[in-house]
Write a protein that binds this DNA or RNA. Structure first.
Ligand code: MN
Ligand code: MN
Length: 321
DNA sequence: GTTAAAG
DNA sequence: CTTTAACAACGCTGC
DNA sequence: GCAGCG
């Protein structure tokens, strides 16, 4: 019988037989074994990038963790980043090796969300991301159709991308960009590409930031840029069955659903080959006119803020006599 | 999961 | 000594 | 510091 405790790569693993979460359908051991099985594929996406994780402790609500706990072992590499929002330094982990990944696994860290730039080159993202979020209850097929719009928009400006499932209901289109690309340029180009995709089929895709305004269309989310993080390929998601964010070839999109890729199925898929092989284009320079177009696109969030602010004020006025 | 305070 | 509680997010944008 | 969203 396997013990509920063990040491692996010098890391103590505890309570391995406990269920991970009520609906996860997996134990803590399942999580640890999965992460260890795929560490060779996952670590390249985590290495050198400030990391956020989603943890779930027994009987508690899941939470996102950015700042490392005080008790973190000193061999976990980290980087301190000033957070404007909370006016403090946040100590982000850099998950560079198997030992650190196993430590996070024992911490019940299920989801791994690295930033788009590495600590060596802050302000220079390695990829553009077009995040496709289908509306509530929609078929996965609409996300696939929206991804094809993005692919066409990319092709129209001479760019190429690769696609992965988010692990939840949508897709992520990744566009590797060269080292000359700044965060500002990346954000602008992403905005331009999102609008171009929307224009290719406005009945299917929308760039509306406010959910109410999306009208059952797929949200082409261009806000995964700048200081944002993105769930890594091969990271599990905290949902029933522990699905995994997983690369899919453009030609295979019609043949898969996100639930095909879980902590149970993925280890066998990656054992003898890299699923990214032949899918990820090399880093590309951004066309200057695309960046310029993006700079001219107004940010929808501003309008949203004004209206929300008014609503909140009205709410307060109605409550206090 | 871990630590520190309370019982 | 054992139980319980507290803790664990931020970027984006403009007002 | 906040709305809205991820
Ligand atoms: Mn998404
Ligand atoms: Mn999104």
């Amino acid at each position: 019988m396997s013990s509920a405790e063990q040491t692996r790569d010098g890391v103590s693993l505890t309570n391995l037989d406990q269920p991970l979460a009520p609906d996860a359908g997996a134990s803590k051991r399942d999580l640890v074994d999965y992460l260890d099985a795929v560490h060779g594929r996952l670590l390249p996406w985590l290495r050198g990038r400030p990391l956020s994780v989603v943890r779930v402790l027994r009987g508690q609500a899941p939470f996102m963790q950015k700042n490392l706990p005080k008790y973190t072992p000193d061999w976990v590499r980290r980087t301190s980043v000033w957070a404007e929002a909370s006016h403090r330094d946040v100590s982000y982990a850099l998950c560079d090796d198997r030992r650190t990944l196993l430590w996070f696994a024992n911490q019940r860290a299920v989801e791994y969300h690295p930033t788009l730039s590495t600590v060596d080159r802050p302000g220079h993202p390695t990829d553009l991301v077009l995040d496709l979020d289908p509306p509530e209850g929609a078929d996965f097929g609409v996300a696939v159709a929206a991804a094809r719009l993005v692919r066409q928009a990319l092709a129209d400006v001479g760019l190429a991308g690769a696609v992965k499932t988010s692990g939840a209901k949508g897709l992520h289109v990744l566009v590797p960009v060269d080292g000359a690309t700044s965060a500002e340029e990346a954000a602008a180009a992403t905005r331009a590409l999102a609008v171009r995709a929307e224009r290719l089929d406005p009945a299917l895709a929308t760039t509306a930031f406010i959910r109410e305004d999306r009208g059952g269309r797929v949200f082409v989310d261009s806000t995964r840029a700048g200081g944002a993080s993105l769930v890594a390929a091969f990271s599990p998601r905290l949902r029933p069955g522990l699905p995994v964010s997983y690369p899919v070839g453009w030609d295979d999109l019609d043949a898969v659903v996100p639930a095909d890729f879980t902590v149970r199925t993925v280890p066998a898929l990656v054992a003898d080959r890299d699923p990214w092989a032949g899918l990820l284009p090399p880093p590309q320079p951004l066309p200057a006119d695309l960046v310029e177009q993006g700079r001219g696109i107004p940010v929808a969030r501003v309008q949203a803020m004004h209206e929300g602010r008014r609503r909140a004020r009205a709410r307060r006025a109605a409550q206090s006599p």
